[in-house]
Design a protein around this nucleic acid. Structure first.
Lengths: 190, 190
DNA sequence: TGAAAATCTTAATCCGGGTTAAGTTTTGCT
DNA sequence: AGCAAAACTTAACCCGGATTAAGATTTTCA
């Protein structure tokens, strides 16, 4: 359980009244597992902060197969960035993998924050930079590593998720079918 | 030939003295083709703006094969973001594909700008958001599309590069070998 | 301008991972 | 607790793209 204010305090320092104002713009939401928070074709209006639990972002390809784009565990943010910043319908689905406690910030309120408390512009600039680095690393891994090594990368990066998620979602994240994943696990010690 | 000030003016408005101050922090560089601007193991100190020409960012895997991570044509920025923000040695090579006219901004100067002219924090926040969206889309494409479709995506996105770069760099960008790329081209009209 | 280097092509063979189709657990729900 | 749905496994066969090894073409630059 990581609080939103703690998350922010990693990068910027807020006065008490700024914290209060910020929290006044944030919505709370509790969801059960397997709840759909965003669907393909919808405009994504919120950045979602995960206080507890785990969300999953995925797309559906033209054969109806899912491709997991990202997981967000406690302390992480998730959104359909394309849709959020263009305000156009996106292709991402966002669904809870577990029951989860969320905090929501609309893009509108986020932009209000940028105007009124420039420190937030810094906070989200840093968050976005970190996210970009992680995303680029994933492209490098996809281009340079085989499935087995991508899996080892995955458990190094998200050790807690290994036993908490259905294998097929992990398989999808690393880019293989559940059948192949199963075969691969047979040959991995442990 | 896209000027840096024009690039910035897309997202923020600067006063004349701010422009002047900004330009005083920016270095100019002209390079011939195939010049190495950054190597694996080095710390990346600069964000590079491409005024004219084309740069290419790539990694080398353990077999010595190149993987093109990004191209930067006129009007684009390029850097090893991981290294730039952590100040640790990175894995990216950056090399000119053509002769090129560049402008360089050190991370140090960039952070000075963030302090002194908060509008720059906004500018780079937006730039990073856009970059994140593009990078995520590439992951989606890599997971959902076959090589042929990824190539069609590539020429849709970078139509001008199709005839200006060695095929093997395009092959590497879309994630196939030059041999397979050549075979694939045979079967593509045009 | 000419020769070496780089790039591109072709073709045979190989392999990582996909597909299909069962069957077997495990989980969730009432 | 008990049953349906979801998740996982296995195995046979298939295919997109890799590898290897030539050779042909283009580019570079002395």
């Amino acid at each position: 359980m990581e609080s939103l204010l703690n998350n922010i305090a990693r990068y910027i320092q807020l006065e008490d009244d700024e914290k209060e104002y910020f929290l006044s713009l944030v919505g709370e939401k509790k969801v059960r597992r397997k709840q759909l928070l965003l669907q393909e074709g919808e405009v994504c209006h919120h950045s979602i902060f995960v206080k507890s639990g785990c969300l999953r972002g995925y797309t559906l390809d033209k054969n109806g197969d899912e491709h997991v784009i990202s997981f967000a565990t406690a302390g992480w943010w998730i959104a359909d960035m394309y849709s959020l910043i263009t305000r156009k319908p996106g292709q991402l689905f966002i669904e809870s993998s577990t029951e989860a406690h969320l905090q929501l910030l609309t893009r509108e309120h986020q932009e209000k924050l940028f105007e009124q408390i420039p420190k937030f512009e810094r906070f989200f600039r840093i968050l976005t930079e970190n996210s970009l680095v992680a995303t680029q690393q994933r492209i490098i891994d996809n281009l340079s590593l085989g499935a087995r090594e991508r899996y080892l990368e995955f458990i190094r990066k998200y050790p807690s998720l290994k036993d908490e998620l259905p294998q097929k979602h992990i398989a999808s994240y690393i880019g293989v079918t559940p059948e192949f994943f199963s075969k691969m696990m047979r040959s991995l010690p442990e």
